[in-house]
Amino acid sequence: MPQTLFIGLMSGTSTDGVDAVLADFSTPDRPCILASSSLAMPDALRREFLALNITGPDELLRSSLAGNALAELYAGATRTLLTQANLGPDKICAIGAHGQTVRHDPAAGFTIQINAPALLAERTGIAVVADFRSRDVAAGGQGAPLVPAFHHALFSHSEARAVLNLGGIANVTLLSPDGDIRGFDTGPANVLMDLWVQHKTGVAYDAQGSWASTGQANQTLLDFLLRSEPWFELAPPKSTGRDLFNWKWLMQRLDAFEGPPLADNDIQATLQQLTAATIAHGIKRYAPDTRDVLVCGGGALNDGLIRDLQRVLPCPLRTTADFGVPVQLVEALAFAWLAWAHVNGYRAGLPKVTGARHASILGCTYPA
């Protein structure tokens, strides 16, 4: 069996769909994407994953059923890739399948990604590498972000560079010319903006920041949001998710805000600036010599957010598409690479990033 063809499957914090990539890692730092696919998350499954972020009845049963449903979706995405590339499952070394994060509390020693990798292996006839985060958490780390080693392999440069992923949560990788790699979550990217626009307009997300562009960001509210959350001032290593930045977090702060009443679109514009401000704070504080920022993730398609970011960052923004990787496929490609790293015994869990006691080989294998 060739050891160079891997599939990566990713469904992120936004729970809007599954991104899938089939790549050839003959040259690990320059993978060749052979096929790609994106499948929308079925509404019922998306609602279930969001509900499982908080305590509820029959969680064990519901999470198991949701994991099976996700594995079926993953299997469908895998079949699409194989059809596109005209390959049989016997040609693929392994699938890297992240699963859907519903709880993340490394301080308590756990992180939960709902998945059914054994079922995925059964449905596809391909070995599956899954459960990427728990080994790092067991070693005292945050279990996140996991992609800095991958970012280093693909995007390292002779000058200081940051790679910024704008999913539900924003995370940044800081790459130094000397090979030093750091990374951490900076806070919300799309999660709060999505929650607010869904609540007020019924649409899934603010496409290209069009609704935010009709409002005016309120500096008093922005300052209040920044002051009211101690997590923003924590030093790395740090990670976060919907456990913290959720509807309850947003409503508590809007209820406590003592400024003048704001229009709904003004709040959206302020939440967009909150994302930009927290990212800029992290880069300026921990990598002031950064010469450029490569952006990826769904938020890279939000023109309004990109404009806000460019205003507050002291260096130019580019996208990973300029380097051959479409912005919405970077994380799926990262998990194909992490599967490659697991199979080849490469320790992709980096203590400088996660705070773990030692570097770890991430994931575990479910044979075909």
Rank of each mutant, 00 (worst) to 15 (best):
N86A: 14
A107Q: 08
F132M: 05
H98A: 09
T124H: 05
A75G: 15
G109A: 02
L73M: 14
L81Q: 14
G76M: 14
P89F: 07
I95H: 09
A107V: 05
T78D: 09
F132A: 05
T78V: 14
Q113G: 01
Q84T: 15
G88H: 14
N115R: 09
A77Q: 06
A97W: 02
Q113E: 08
L70K: 10
I95D: 07
P117G: 13
A77P: 06
V128G: 01
V129E: 12
D131T: 07
A121I: 05
A127M: 00
V128D: 04
A77M: 04
A116T: 05
R123A: 13
L73P: 10
A118S: 15
C93L: 11
A77R: 06
R79K: 14
H98F: 09
G109T: 05
L87K: 08
R123P: 13
V129Q: 11
E122A: 12
A75H: 12
A75Y: 12
I95C: 06
R135T: 01
T78Y: 06
H104N: 02
L119C: 01
K91Y: 11
L81E: 14
G76D: 15
P117R: 10
L73Y: 11
H104Y: 01
L81P: 11
L87I: 07
A130E: 10
K91E: 15
S134T: 09
L87R: 11
C93Q: 15
H98C: 09
H98V: 03
G125E: 04
G99N: 09
A94W: 04
T78R: 06
I114F: 09
G109N: 11
F110P: 08
T124P: 12
A127I: 00
A121R: 03
A130R: 10
C93T: 15
